[in-house]
Design a protein around this nucleic acid. Structure first.
Length: 276
DNA sequence: GCCCAGGTATAAA
DNA sequence: TTTATACATGGG
């Protein structure tokens, strides 16, 4: 991987296993907008535009320093997904098929608080509407920088009441967001600790929050704390286990169960007939 | 209008 | 300990 400066950003050659649509628009992050092949979004308080020019990955509106400090990690560029995919593929023939179907998925390293908050919003909801709510949350309570808004901090939201969130139109989830903000800002829930806790304990830590069950906790751990070793539960995965992997249990998915799950999820969503 | 969305809290069996 | 229902909102 080689990083070079360009007019207003950086160009990285030798990036493999990264498809922008598969990664930025697959329901793990809700702040990326695609416009003819270019994805613009905000993370860690910075807004960039990401796209491919031939085989080179370009990130506009950034610096080499920010690439090293933020985007290299955010896009998980130091993890060898080719190797992981090979390992996962070897576990089961259907898993091999799923890996080959969307080989450009990576697990983003999002900010833990943003992941927690957006997956609280995601419950019983659809991606289009989640994006709208998250957008309004940022515009209403985030920090304005030039022409964009950062994701509001837990501290900021902790100072509000559920009714104050009415403008974002998240419905019954408003009270959950406030509860999460208060527990995170107040230290009752320690997100950073969830990186190293035993998985079940990390889950329990997050589930102290009202509106956080196993599913939201698992998504937070996977997408916000990079707990790629665990197999998140949800209705699609249960169906996938029954129909596609009747001979496997969650424990058979190896050290990269979280990543395997993403390949399976993408595959199963694109082939709903497999579950009829 | 009706159904549903990568769920969760709460109240019954 | 398992199974049903409400929950806010808006897209299809």
């Amino acid at each position: 991987m080689e990083v070079n400066k360009i007019k207003n950003g950086v160009k990285i050659s030798g990036v493999s296993d990264l498809d922008l649509a598969q990664t930025l628009d697959c329901g793990q992050s809700f702040r990326w907008v695609e416009e003819n092949g270019k994805f613009s979004g905000v993370a860690y308080g910075k807004k960039v535009e990401i796209y491919y020019e031939n085989d080179d990955l370009c990130i506009d509106n950034t610096t080499s320093e920010d690439f090293e400090a933020v985007w290299r990690e955010y896009l998980d560029l130091d993890l060898d997904y080719g190797k992981i995919r090979a390992e996962v593929s070897a576990l089961h023939p259907v898993l091999k098929e799923a890996c080959a179907y969307a080989p450009g998925i990576r697990i983003l390293r999002q900010e833990p608080w943003e992941a927690l908050c957006t997956f609280i919003i995601s419950q019983n909801n659809n991606i289009k509407r989640i994006k709208g709510i998250v957008g309004r949350l940022c515009e209403s309570f985030g920090e304005r920088i030039e022409d964009y808004y950062t994701f509001p901090s837990a501290e900021k939201l902790a100072s509000l009441e559920a009714e104050d969130l009415a403008p974002i139109r998240a419905g019954f989830r408003n009270k959950y967001i406030i509860d999460a903000a208060q527990k995170v800002a107040g230290g009752e829930v320690n997100l950073e600790k969830c990186r190293t806790l035993e998985y079940e304990q990390a889950r329990a830590e997050l589930m102290k929050i009202k509106g956080v069950g196993v599913k939201v906790a698992d998504c937070t751990l996977l997408f916000g704390l990079h707990r790629i070793e665990a197999f998140p539960v949800d209705v699609w995965m249960r169906r996938a286990l029954e129909k596609l992997f009747p001979d496997m249990t969650e424990n058979d998915f190896g050290d990269y169960a979280g990543i395997a799950q993403q390949y399976i999820f993408h595959y199963s969503r694109m082939h709903p007939e497999l579950f009829e």
